[in-house]
Design a binder for these strands. Structure first.
Lengths: 205, 205
DNA sequence: TAGTAATAACCGACTGTTTGGTCGGCTGGC
DNA sequence: GCCAGCCGACCAAACAGTCGGTTATTACTA
């Protein structure tokens, strides 16, 4: 459908063309447009501008493309949970930090995170990704519980529910946010925090 | 995989079994589990406990199943926009009403709304559904703009952004909410409104 | 009340196409 | 001459959809 250029030429030996990373970027883009199951290797080859069999030079199959993409998103998200901003200080501050970082990561790795958030658990690869996602969600859930115990979150709403709504809001960004169309990741994070936290936080005296 | 019972016996003529509605309910459930593209008519027949060719007695094809399901969700959502709560009174109140009704509809028609929110525009049917969804989003967007002009929403954040975040939060409910597991639709709506509106509304004097 | 329509749902066997994946060999830059 | 990347032709399995005919229930009527 779209011939596409074979990517940049590096100073490396061998024939120029796609390397794993540049190929993955295109693949993930197409997956997000048509859905993983809705994308055939044929149309993927078409969009890459190379033949289908060439794809198998880079990866063992369709599933590996998915696995690489999901791994990239998950690694970025988990990295944020070990940063000092997310492990030190008052829980409510850690939570806000994690929300902001998650928005940043989502914006920076938008295609990969998008793919991750759409996984339904159809294969072993997908189920493994879902399990890691659940781990991340637990981390968030514990932060909210701690913040509630520390008295920094309105006790009227169940902490588990707050955690879900909060990251539901963050994750919903993938549905419409596109980089370089006015709004920066920081602006986004500000807006998300403004809407959610000014509701979560106790009214200022 | 799961033989499934052929459904209730009504007082109507003809062999008992699935009617269109009961068949659609099962189909949508499977679509949500495996994704529309990831669901073959063979496994669908399996889950229904009938043969594949029997499905074609009820619908003309896979696409019609999707179309019926999406129509049901869209009709329910649009119906809410014509209710008096959404058309009379201060804009901020209309907006809150529409949020609450949307949560209720989402809870009541969960499988159908879930399917709708996952459509990617792969076929003509899907694109039509996306167009109608965009119409709904515009309705919401205009409400937020009006509420901002009436001075009931913090002017610090762009109204279009607020609309997206707000309904992003509502729509994210499909990712985890399941009826009859403690939380009622009203509880949900309360929590959503509490988190979002107490941030959106100007601090009370 | 027995027999027959009318009706609504179901089925097995089949078909043409699309799918993910394989194989042995080719090409262009360092 | 080595390396990274590419290719056309092929394949078995899975796919959506078709067809002619069957089965189980209610409704009508002699």
């Amino acid at each position: 459908m779209k011939p596409a250029k074979p990517a940049k030429r590096t100073g490396r030996p061998g024939r120029p063309g796609y390397d794993l990373d540049s190929l993955l970027a295109v693949a993930v883009k197409v997956f997000n447009e048509k859905g993983y199951d809705g994308t055939s290797m044929d149309v993927l080859a078409d969009r890459l501008g190379i033949s289908k069999s060439s794809i198998y030079h880079h990866v063992s199959g369709k599933q590996e493309l998915l696995e690489l993409a999901l791994g990239r998103a998950l690694n970025a998200l988990f990295a944020a949970t070990t940063e000092t901003g997310a492990t030190e200080g008052r829980s409510i501050e850690r939570l806000e930090y994690l929300v902001r970082r998650s928005v940043e990561i989502l914006a920076a790795e938008l295609p990969y995170v998008t793919l991750l958030l759409r996984v339904r658990g159809n294969s072993a690869v997908e189920r493994r990704a879902l399990a890691r996602r659940r781990e991340f969600d637990e981390f968030v859930g514990n932060l909210v519980i701690a913040a509630a115990e520390e008295g920094d979150v309105s006790p009227e709403v169940d902490p588990a529910l707050v955690a879900r709504l909060l990251f539901g809001t963050v994750n919903s960004l993938i549905e419409w946010y596109r980089p370089r169309v006015g709004i920066s990741a920081d602006d986004l994070a500000d807006a998300v925090v403004a809407m959610t936290f000014d509701g979560l936080r106790r009214p200022r005296t």
